[in-house]
Each structure stands twice: as structure tokens, then as C-alpha cells.
Design a protein around this nucleic acid. Sequence first.
DNA 1: GTTCTTTGTGTCAATATTACACTTTCAAAT
DNA 2: ATTTGAAAGTGTAATATTGACACAAAGAAC
Lengths: 248, 248
Amino acid sequence: MQKKSNAVLNPNVSVDCVIFGFDLEKLTVLLIDRGDAGAEYGTRMSLPGDLIYDNENLDEAASRVLNELTGLHDIYLEQVGGFGDPNRLNKETDQAWLKAIREKPNERVVTIAYYSLVPSSDFQPHASSFAKNADWFPVHQITDLAFDHFDILQTAREKLRQKIKIQPIGFNLLPEKFTLSQLHKLYESILDKPLDKRNFRRKIQKLNILTNLREKQQGVPHKPSALYMFNEEKYLELMQKGFDNFDF
Amino acid sequence: MQKKSNAVLNPNVSVDCVIFGFDLEKLTVLLIDRGDAGAEYGTRMSLPGDLIYDNENLDEAASRVLNELTGLHDIYLEQVGGFGDPNRLNKETDQAWLKAIREKPNERVVTIAYYSLVPSSDFQPHASSFAKNADWFPVHQITDLAFDHFDILQTAREKLRQKIKIQPIGFNLLPEKFTLSQLHKLYESILDKPLDKRNFRRKIQKLNILTNLREKQQGVPHKPSALYMFNEEKYLELMQKGFDNFDF
DNA sequence: GTTCTTTGTGTCAATATTACACTTTCAAAT
DNA sequence: ATTTGAAAGTGTAATATTGACACAAAGAAC
């Protein structure tokens, strides 16, 4: 899934990825610091993205961008949609930067945005040899980004909110073993509103898609929590019975 | 909103529109018959679409395509997403047709799909001077289309199903005055499943977004139905109170 | 053993959902 | 004028879901 031999970049179409993570407290996004001097901090940061190759489809292009940045494979990916304002690349600071990296910096580029869900534990920028200028940022702290990426981010958050009400994809953001409190916080972070603890637990338990590992957290300075796993089998059963609403 | 002066077509990006209608019985789609001899009936039909101009954004391009075909303005439009398989235009019959109409028939084209909702009464192809080769087809009858348009259609139907559970956009498919039975059938057509009459009525009435016009149908050979209008004001009130689920 | 912190649990009232059948009103036909 | 056919319109009871709410239990740190 690296750059393909003989493949040519299409000058008019790119993909951009909103890579969501969860630090067990807040929803985060993986951003790249372009490091250009002219731009202010906010607009210096951008989503990872690239022009597409002429022999790859859009999902493949998004997977590639994700893989080139993080080294990860088989990550949850969902399309957000196309963004194609004719002036989306025309901010001065963005133009300066494009001139440095693109053969044809003035081409109009329509981008297809994706979001992906990565267990933060699977990718720690500082420990990795990839992507020295990439890092996780809490979504709440982000107020501006390069190009139209802030807009893309907000749209991706909205899609994620919608999606999680229909499918329990949140598990893709958690380590394999997790506590109900972590899951609770994750739902609150995504939906951006508080959820009653007891009601949340009742509801998620009734779905019957969690396996209680009968294991406890170790070394926490308070009552240790039970650990759970997502049970894909039971989830698929549930879906077959025609379920379509998690509705938290 | 006609072709813009000095504007140039982008060879790599198009829009395609899934234009939904409702004949008061079934959900329909506006398709174009390319009329090419080589292709079988199904694959001869396509969604209306066009390459984008370099100075218009994606929504504008979709509105333009819709307007050029139907003459209509201010129509409900929603993006479905990007479709970009490298081989999406490579079926033989499609290639033959592209050679007849495009300057560069072999260019790779990524398309951004939209769906729109049109009250069928607002556009009758036969009565119109536009689009002599376009017509409404019941979505259920469609088994194949040109390019990847069948795939696009199915994705658009799914998006519409999702959307109507969250926002009462169905009114865009009905004439200004409509009966509860028509609304009922519309929901059944979109969700593709039967809904209990009494429960449907109770639920939609409780939302309190309909105005009873205190008028009756004329000339029907059975008990005439009361006529209703969608009340946008009350709908906006409802939304502000933080409502997000119609869930039929 | 005291303190701090987080886990984990139940009930009740209000609301929402589901399943289900008969009467009414009109036009058309006789 | 009466009958017929066809769709409109209406209520209830049983069940399930939601939302609001508070305190005891478990462990680590001191």
C-alpha cells in the first residue's frame, strides 16, 4: 500500500483524513504541523491528506494516507464527503505552503474527506519513527486549521455523532479491554453532552454486546473497575434481528 | 445559473444527481435515457450529471445540473458522497457513449453524488420542453444503470432513509397540500416497510408540525381526506428545543 | 485506620410503543 | 333513492423504555 509503481498523481482530487483518537478522557484528532513560519499556530496545522493516484480508488487512497502517517493497517474508515469550494486552497499561507510541496500549486483540488477511528494506544507519535511533526490534539482545543480543514473536522464530528447512534463503532477507539466508565466517557465526548451514569450502563448492558472479562483493573487508587471486551459475534446477531438505533 | 462565461470544465470531477420524486404511491427517480443502440435497456439509463466548472463549487454544480434538466430552482439537495473507482467509467457501452460526448473520454473522473427531492407535480417531463429523454421511474423497478449509477442510487436511498429519521424532509416530495395517507405512503416508500396507520398518525400529529387546513379533498369516490400543510415555523421551534429523532 | 476517589447498583413515575377493528363519508352504479 | 365499494378516521390496553435520583463498597495512599 505504499506509492505504486508507474502510478501518477491526479492533480485535481485529494483525500484528507480526520483521524480520531481517545485518550480515555477526551476525543482527539491527529494533526500535522506544517511548521511554516508565516502562518499562525492554528492555521499551520492540517489534516493529513494527499492527491490520489490514478490507479487507486478513494478508500484505498485514504487508507494509504493513514498508513503512510501511522504505519497502521485495517483501520475503521468512513467517508465524510466531498469538499470542493473553488477557493478552498487560496488562503495566502496555504498557497505559500503548497508552492513548496506541489508541482502544480495552483490547480483546483476537490478533496474527499474521511474519518477514521484509531485506538490511541496503537499510535503514539513520539515513540514512533514516522510522522515526527504529527500529534494528537483534543478536538475541543482546535479553533482553526489550514485550508478548509476546520470545516471538514466539524462535519466529520457530526457524521461520527450520527453514526454512533446507529452502530456501536466507538469500540474502535478503545483498547481491547476497557471499563464501562471509559466507554461512558467516550460516548459523552463524541455526543458532547453528559449522560446519566446509571442509565447509560443499563442501556449498554441491555444491548448484550459486551463480554465481562471477570478481570479487574490493577493498581488504581480506588475501587477497581471490571474490564469488558466488545463481542462482535453478539453484535452481528443483534444486527440481524433488525436493530437500528442505539439512541443515547 | 446557466453555463458561465469563460468557465472551463474540470476533466476529473463531476456531479451526479439522484432526483427523487413521489407519484403519491411510490418513490421515483428521474433518469435519462442515453438512447445508445449498443446498450441494454437498464444500462442505457443514467443519472443526470456533468463535469464541474472551474469556478463553481460542488453544490452549485449539482444545482446547475438539476436546473438544466428540469428548469427548477431552490430544490432540496443533499450530498451523498464521492465515488471514485478508477474503473467506474470503463464498461464498454459506457465508453462508447462517452466518446460521443466528451472531449477526453478516457480521463478518470471522480464524481460527487447528490440526491434531491422534487415534488413530482413540479416537473412533468412530457409536458416540459426540457429533457425529452428524461422520465420518472419507480425506484423498485430499477435493476441496473449506466456507470456506477446503480450503486450511487442505492447509497442515496440509504442516506435518505437515515435522514428522514432525523429531519422531516419528506415534505419536499409532496405538493403543498397533502393528506395524511399520502404522507403515510411516502414514509413507507422511503423506509421500504409497512407502518401501522394509527400509530403513524398519532406520532406525526404529536410532532405538531402540520397545519390542518380544514379543507377536504374534492371528487374522490370515498370519504374525502382532510388536507394538511407542513408548518415550517413550528418545525423550527421543535428543532430549537433540541429534537433529533423522528424514528418511525 | 482514616481519607480519598471512583465503581457499581435499584426504583418509581412518566412516557412511548405496539397491536389491533369498526364506523363514517363520499361517489358511482343500479 | 338505495346499495356498493373504497379509503378516512378514530381509542385502548398491555408492555417497554426513559429519566431522575443517592448511597454503599473497594482499593491505594497516607
